[in-house]
Design a protein around this nucleic acid. Structure first.
Lengths: 155, 155
DNA sequence: CGTCAAAACCGAATTAAATTCTGAAACAAA
DNA sequence: TTTGTTTCAGAATTTAATTCGGTTTTGACG
């Protein structure tokens, strides 16, 4: 892997692409006072070097179908590296789990979970997540309203 | 706004677009055994009707620069609708806040926050978030490892 | 300073994709 | 069946992505 230190143009490109992955190279060039060629080459380099992970589409799920979102904090009984890793692997494999983070402090993991409704949520909690080994304690909080959810990282 | 009930083809399109917003209509059509014309028209309709929110780029922020992620649970002193709404508005306006959810249970809000490092985090906590009105209590958990973070919603 | 090599850039040329257009097939209501 | 509507495929066109050739900029080195 090359070593390459991003310059201001690279940062500017990433900043714009973060909120619009379908902008044309021409328009991107106009915003950044360059022709499309260098912009194109830089985007390809950012992809190649792994600064760009993926291009995704955000869909309006609440409009699409009923949707229940919740956060679940998880405590484990065993805190060995293997046990922690195992839990993470198992939890991440569940499609309802949109986020899984290993935390400092009282709880070991925080999960963000999406299901269709309370019935599916119960099903998920007791039949899937609850059946994973090594769980001491699960604590759910249901999302009443999602005020912000943005993949855009501040610069 | 038209009323329109999505069919299986629409769902299939959304499912694929969720993980790849730059696939060509031609390729999308091949996956779904259609020519690109109907696929194109359906995507435009999904955009028009608001099922598709946006096309975004996910960047590898940890590769880009140092990065500290944390979850902060917030309790307020005043639980009137206005106070709740005010807090949400103020918190969402902070660029460090990537997610802001209003929860059931003991805590009122859960925030996902990104800063460059502990110094910036303290700055954020005491100078920005902590200065918002009506906060009873803030409880931070630092993310040791992010095992999954996906905008892909299960179908 | 000049010289050289590498990298970045621009504009034109080409290739590929998006978008539009035309008409055929499927479907539903009368 | 007839009629109107929707969906679709394939061709035609427009627009964008990608490649190419050559110029400018930049930075190392004598």
């Amino acid at each position: 892997m090359e070593d390459y230190c991003l310059d201001e143009l690279d940062y500017a490109i990433l900043k714009i692409l973060q909120t619009d992955s379908r902008i044309t190279y021409d328009d991107l060039g106009k915003k950044l006072h360059r022709s499309k060629t260098p912009i194109f080459e830089r985007v390809k380099r950012l992809e190649r070097l792994g600064y760009i992970d993926s291009y995704v589409t955000l869909i309006n799920y609440t409009k699409l179908r009923e949707c229940l979102m919740s956060y679940i904090s998880v405590k484990l009984t065993d805190h060995s590296i293997e046990a922690l890793q195992d839990f993470a692997t198992n939890a991440c494999a569940l499609p309802e789990v949109m986020e899984c983070a290993h935390l400092t402090g009282g709880t070991d993991f925080l999960l963000k979970v999406v299901t269709k409704n309370m019935e599916h949520y119960n099903e998920f909690l007791f039949r899937k997540l609850g059946k994973l080994p090594n769980i001491a304690n699960l604590n759910s909080s249901i999302v009443i309203g999602q005020n912000k959810s943005s993949p855009v990282i501040p610069f």
